[in-house]
């Protein structure tokens, strides 16, 4: 049961949240100009990095904010993301 640091509510149990996956997966500005391969890559592939990953989390049972954190996928150490990704 991870503790997720919600920027508004503070530390809360992970069952108040839903994970939104890697924040590096940004929707292409112009999907029409992507190739099928690029589009598939966006849809289906994550870096799945062993180490610190920046992720979106949604505080669904709380303030309902979406925010990013940095999570170490090996040790589960969690920090609020140092800069917001817009």
């Amino acid at each position: 049961m991870l503790l997720i640091p919600c920027p508004w509510c503070g530390q809360r149990n992970e069952d108040e949240f839903m994970c939104g996956g890697e924040s590096a997966r940004v929707r292409p500005d112009d999907p029409a100009s992507t190739t099928d391969a690029q589009w598939s890559d966006y849809l289906y592939n994550s870096t799945n990095h062993k180490g610190v990953v920046r992720e979106w989390w949604w505080h669904v049972n709380g303030c309902t904010k979406w925010f990013v954190i940095d999570r170490d996928t090996v040790t589960h150490a969690i920090q609020p993301a140092s800069e917001e990704i817009s």
């Binding site: 809360r12 149990n13 108040e16 049972n61 709380g62």
Partner: peptide, 22 residues
């Protein structure tokens, strides 16, 4: 609820998980 009830004083408010429904 799994929040720390020591942290929320009289007059305050919050939203959290509660039982199975929030």
């Amino acid at each position: 609820v799994s929040i720390d009830l020591d942290d929320y004083a009289s007059g305050q408010c919050t939203r959290s998980g509660f039982a199975r429904c929030g």
